[in-house]
Structures are given as structure tokens and as C-alpha cells.
Amino acid sequence: MLLLALDTATPAVTVALHDGRDVIASSSQVDARRHGELLLPAIDRVFAEAGLRLDAVTGIVAGIGPGPYTGLRVGLMTADTFGLALGVPVHGVCTLDGLAYAADLQGPFVVATDARRKEVYWARYTDSRTRVTDPAVDRPADIAEQVAGLPAVGAGALLYPETFPKAHEPEHVSAAALARLAAEKLAAGEELPAPRPLYLRRPDAQVPKNYKVVTPK
């Protein structure tokens, strides 16, 4: 088994290779504005490091967000197209689940990433493998009660200490964690979600205002 995992739903452009036992190569760069440029060279580097080629993979794992859309789509489009070209399955993993897995906490906690516009993408977990709420997007103040007293991880938690006073690392998701989580679930015979984006918000559609009269009154 050889899994290629990637995630572009947070400011990190992160790639990892997992051979069924563990991660054998990985790369993570943080640059929220250059997912499109950084992803493929990173993939190329990871394969070179492992001394393998893309056509050796048996499956692709892609973070499905939630996350800022433009970056999120870079990873999902790349994963989709690899799947088409190589004829291998493409699995989705919720990006927040990857962060939760990397957090490696025992008790209940929260994962929150930065959704911009003063909001966070977030979900609650009872342990690192068990999410108990659907991923959602909210203003931190509006969810203060639901997350009160809980430890929290992710850039969204670190950004709003009033709501998340017990926030700590990891800040961004890593594909290594995503790969380990996916490998564990696949080995257990669990079904992973389709690699479709979790946008959580409707597209901003500026409906043009009603036709503006040009004749001066």
C-alpha cells in the first residue's frame, strides 16, 4: 500500500507518503497565498525523497476542508485529477479530523481553524479519533458557550483567545497526520468520505442591484 495524502484547506501546503506502516516522506510549507504554486513541487519533492514515483501509489487522501475555498480547491482538484490519470481511489478526510488526530488528546476538546471574516471552522471531539459535531462555521463569540472550558487546537483557536483560552498547537493540519488517520481507518475497513469540498457557506453571489436609472432626475 502506498497512500499520497495532501491538504490545502489551511495556510499549510502539506503532502505526505504513507506505505501502510508509517509515513515515509512528508513536506509542509505555510504560505496561505501560494497553494497553487507550491503543491505540485512539494509532491515532486516528497516522491524524490522516498525514491518512488507517483504511479506507485495505490490511493490518494485529500483534506476536504472546511477551509478557504480557493486554496482548498487546489488540493481537491489535484487529487481528483491524479485519481483519473492513475485509476486509483481518492478518499476524503475532514481537515479538522486531521488536526484532531495530530493533537493527540484524550479528553474532550475543540478544533478550530481560521475561516477569515472573523469566523472559525470548528468541531468538537471526545478524543483524537472521535468527532461529535458536524464541522461548522461561526463567529467565535457565538460558540463560546459550546466550547467553554475545553482545550482547543488550530489557528482559529489561537486567533481568538477570549473564546479559546486553552488554545495550543498544532496550528495547521499536516498531511502526515491525515495519512496516518486515513491508513488507520482504511485498515479498519472504514469507509472514508468522498473527496468533495466542505464549503459550509453559500457562494458570495453579488446579485447585481436592480437596473440603475442613468437619466438624471
Binding site: 503543491l39 505540485l40 515532486d44 480547491r73 481528483d80 485529477t81 491524479f82
Partner: peptide
């Protein structure tokens, strides 16, 4: 544009 560029890069690389 970025969606198309991402697809093209992945397709070219994989092939």
C-alpha cells in the same frame, strides 16, 4: 483559472 491550472499540472505530472 486556478482550478484549471491545478488540474492540468496534476494531469501532466501523473502522465
Amino acid at each position: 483559472l486556478l482550478v484549471g491550472v491545478s488540474a492540468a499540472k496534476a494531469y501532466a505530472y501523473a502522465l
